[in-house]
Design a protein around this nucleic acid. Structure first.
Lengths: 353, 353
DNA sequence: ATGGTGTTCTTTATCGTTACAGAGAACAAG
DNA sequence: CTTGTTCTCTGTAACGATAAAGAACACCAT
């Protein structure tokens, strides 16, 4: 019992396949009478409507857009930034009656990259521009939009983007700490890519060399970090790659940074979740952020406001919304958007002393 | 400049299309030499690899599975139960290298139903069996799995499922309250479907009539509620439909239930999020759950444990995992799975008096 | 020579649908 | 009685790929 197709119906009814097709898609192309007869017969034969795939092949469009994550999807659902972005993105997609496909392409998982090749979508969005999935998508000639410029090279690539000026944001945060008189600063960065060093202290120049050696594939906040390092030039700066961007990783970093005699006076994480995790570590040790050690993050999550965390707020929802709009409307002229950000000073950062 | 196809490459190189196809998919079918030449030429011509849609049409499989939500997707990402389920579901899908498509088909949104028709997927899963998207998918003859039996009719339908015995769970919860001596109980139920009554008090029999009048499309926890009502028979029971399943809705219910002279001694919400929202309302009024009013929920979220909420724990992750496995492997024999649940008594429910 | 066995490439048919260009009939206008 | 127009419906040719079977040739053992 094979599947019923328009052809079968046409044969049985003695009409052309085109008539059956028109009965479903273009009612004005045939008489109302014949149309109802075709539809009735189709229902009786168990025909379930035009096949989606065949239609897509014909039209060349799927009305589906992919979102690529460089972590497991369970991470995407648990990270507040991802969720907020995804919610805004999906709201626009829903409004336009487009569907969303989720792709998980963990770094280093070469096999998972095939999913990008096999995805029947009209375009793809991702949080980070230099993740393998996005690179592959661009190679495939697929419309892409990404929401973080990881490296300067990304900006010169072929993809569209909706970003903030992460380098400038890093500079601002550095300036803030400098004004507060901090001279010894630790920077917590994520290095989501597998097999990379974690929880080791680096001088900025060594870390730079490490990143360059990995051709930008080492982590996703290069510009942000570059701004920080540049802005903190002359001070004693130490970089700690903590692994995955998560509250747990930030907390773990507390072990390395707090349980020592020569504690830094300030710690900046390149994301709020890491900073919040680090604050958890402070709390566990009875230390008060801002007094015992200044702490700052990036992103501007609601959770950061509750915790009194100094941060750089970025318009997450606008990123998601605009990314969706760029994908949906290829004729929009402005396809490389830089949104404003804002330094928000809270009680977690205070003057040294 | 149209897209490059295998045909173009074949023509230029003077080989058959099949050879080009084999170069990409079946290396053993042609000489290594010719293969490299084909691949090189393909790259030079800007060919980006076999087209996903065409391949899908040929093979009849997409390796993609849909998840249908009866709310906006932003809800799905914010509801703890949804997220936990989705995380487990996606973990299995990722492991099998399958992709996930998210479909949002809000109740009453007839146009959004077309998404089910147009989805190029091998199967579809949903939390609730009687949501329009799932019904349509079954009509289309698509493999379906759902994770809540909303009504008894669902159980007799054609779809596969992974559920708990919600009726028994309701009975158990009722028994628990009865043993504690409660005689006046309010039940908070969700009614996600649009245009339905909210925040009005119903006698059980009136509410039953209302549900029946809507042919089961009124809300999604019918069996659970039926168990509660049955188990509380003889006591004074009031049903309050609160609208969408959310913390905010549960909180709002507090206004109706708490700000009155004849407060009930116990309140049961058909989900933990609603119960937690109701506990928020208690806290705002300086009332202590368990002392001033007993509160209970369903689902067994981690948040419920933190809040000391009595609840029925159900294996969310197993539901998600098994749903994915049923979709991925149509040959699994056991396709209608009833998982165990467990009453967990905490400090939010205590004896009357 | 003969036949069997690979290797390598080609031919043909098909997946299910829709765009496009007609064809024939009916009908109105000149 | 033409000519044009509208209404219905049909046939053909894609969309881009792959499965299956076949053909051409070389190679080896009988």
């Amino acid at each position: 019992m094979a599947r019923v197709t328009q052809q079968d119906i046409a044969k049985v009814m003695g009409v052309s396949v085109m008539t059956v097709s028109n009965a479903f898609n273009r009612p004005d192309q045939l008489s109302p009478d014949l149309r109802t007869r075709v539809l009735e017969r189709a229902a009786k034969m168990g025909y379930t409507g035009p096949d989606a795939i065949a239609r897509q092949l014909r039209s060349g469009r799927t009305n589906t857009f992919a979102v690529a994550f460089e972590e497991k999807l369970s991470y995407a659902f648990s990270d507040p930034f991802s969720v907020a972005w995804l919610a805004a993105f999906s709201e626009v997609m829903e409004k336009h009656r487009a569907s969303i496909m989720l792709l998980s392409v963990p770094a280093g998982d070469h096999e998972a990259l095939a999913a990008v090749q096999d995805a029947a979508v009209d375009g793809i969005a991702g949080l980070c521009g230099n993740q393998p999935a996005m690179i592959r998508a661009r190679e495939r000639g697929m419309p892409t939009v990404y929401c973080t410029l990881a490296t300067r090279e990304d900006a010169e690539g072929t993809g569209d983007y909706v970003v903030i000026d992460d380098h400038a944001a890093g500079l601002e945060m550095a300036g803030h700490l400098r004004r507060l008189g901090h001279e010894r600063v630790f920077l917590l960065v994520e290095t989501p890519y597998r097999g990379q060093p974690r929880m080791v202290e680096y001088r900025p120049e060594d870390f730079r060399a490490l990143v360059d050696a990995h051709a930008g594939y080492l982590f996703s906040d290069d510009l942000r970090l570059a701004g920080l390092v540049e802005g903190l030039h002359g001070l004693e700066v130490t970089i700690v790659p903590v692994g995955t961007n998560s509250r747990a990783a930030g907390n773990a970093a507390g072990t390395l940074v707090l349980d020592r005699t020569d504690r830094p006076s300030a710690v900046v994480a390149v994301s709020d979740v890491m900073a919040l995790g680090f604050m958890d570590a402070c709390a566990q040790r009875g230390l008060e952020p801002g007094l015992d050690v200044s702490v700052a993050g990036f992103d501007g999550l609601p959770e950061a406001a509750d915790a009194g965390l100094t941060t750089i707020r970025q318009p997450v929802r606008d990123k998601g919304r605009l990314a969706a709009e760029l994908l949906l409307d290829p004729s929009l002229p402005d396809r490389r958007i830089i949104l404003p950000h804002e330094l928000i000073v809270r009680r977690s950062t205070r003057p040294v002393g």
